[in-house]
């Protein structure tokens, strides 16, 4: 019996998952293969879903972009910079060009690494994850999708099919701190999205908590401080915003960076992201 299934429809995928219950669900392979190559994982079977039509392509709608789970970061970087600037900016920092050509947004979400570059953007944008299974479809707000370090609400037999990312009107910034100029796991990162229509500021932070996090107190503080017609805020308020973001996170010390540095860095990049977004 074959130990790999390469379904070309969603139904075939569900059948394969039933037939191979221990199978690994494979998208781009950039996370999975590293684990296999390192001996961390020994897959008894694989269900490779990159050919499933329901996971392909993207649709630009008035208020959101509906992105297939199998869409790569290169596609997002090159083709969605106008509609989703922060997500495209984050895409540009994922790994290397080779990684971006293979790694998928669905895979990134399913892996749910605390350092996943696209995840803070999805969190800040209030994206929605669409999951399909034999039982049907369900949607989960991204904020509820990731529950811990590499833990999600994905159930056995479920496949991420789409990610719906709201389009916001306003400046967007993505800043990522790393000790090298390219191909680096973030020490911390920040996605800042300004919604001129809704008059909100959203900030998503990565690598400073077990999951990507928002900074609700900082967000509501600055939303109140901004002159929304001019899209301007006093420098002291911008600085205070940075402090509140810093206070919202409890980063750890690991081999990539110290907690003290992460706190400092997240404050700096939150402040700068806001500065760049305002007039």
């Amino acid at each position: 019996m074959s130990v790999i299934a390469r379904p070309s429809t969603l139904q075939d995928a569900f059948d394969a998952l039933d037939a191979l219950p221990d199978a690994h669900l494979l998208a781009g392979g950039t996370d999975f293969m590293v684990e296999v190559n390192f001996g961390h994982r020994r897959p008894p079977a694989v269900v490779a879903i990159r050919r499933v039509p329901q996971l392909q392509g993207y649709e630009i709608r008035a208020d959101e972009v509906d992105i297939g789970a199998a869409v790569t970061w290169t596609t997002i970087e090159r083709e969605l910079a106008g509609e989703l600037p922060a997500l495209a900016a984050a895409a540009r920092t994922v790994g290397s060009p080779q990684m971006r050509n293979a790694a998928t947004i669905g895979g990134n979400i399913a892996t749910a690494s605390p350092a996943g570059d696209g995840l803070p953007v999805l969190l800040a944008a209030d994206a929605t994850v669409v999951l399909a299974s034999r039982q049907g479809e369900r949607t989960v707000p991204f904020a509820e999708f990731v529950t811990g370090v590499k833990r999600t609400v994905l159930r056995p037999g479920e496949i991420i099919t789409r990610v719906r990312v709201p389009r916001l009107t306003g400046p967007q910034e993505f800043l990522k701190v790393g000790t090298r100029n390219a191909m680096v796991i973030s020490i911390c990162c920040a996605a800042l999205l300004v919604d001129r229509v809704g008059r909100t500021v959203r900030i998503g932070l990565g690598s400073v908590a077990p999951t990507p996090v928002r900074a609700p107190e900082a967000e509501s503080y600055i939303a109140a401080e901004i002159d929304w017609d001019a899209l301007w805020a006093p420098p002291e308020s911008v600085a205070r915003f940075g402090e509140l973001v810093r206070d919202a996170v409890r980063p750890i010390t690991d081999h990539r960076g110290t907690a003290a540095y992460r706190s400092r860095a997240v404050q700096v990049i939150a402040t700068r992201a806001l500065e760049r977004s305002l007039a």
């Binding site: 920092t93 990522k176 790393g178 100029n181 390219a182 191909m183 680096v184 700096v268 700068r272």
Partner: peptide, 16 residues
Amino acid sequence: LMTLPGGAGRTALPHN
């Protein structure tokens, strides 16, 4: 910004 410290992370503006 890619040529400034931070590279692809685009963390700095020239005045930083």
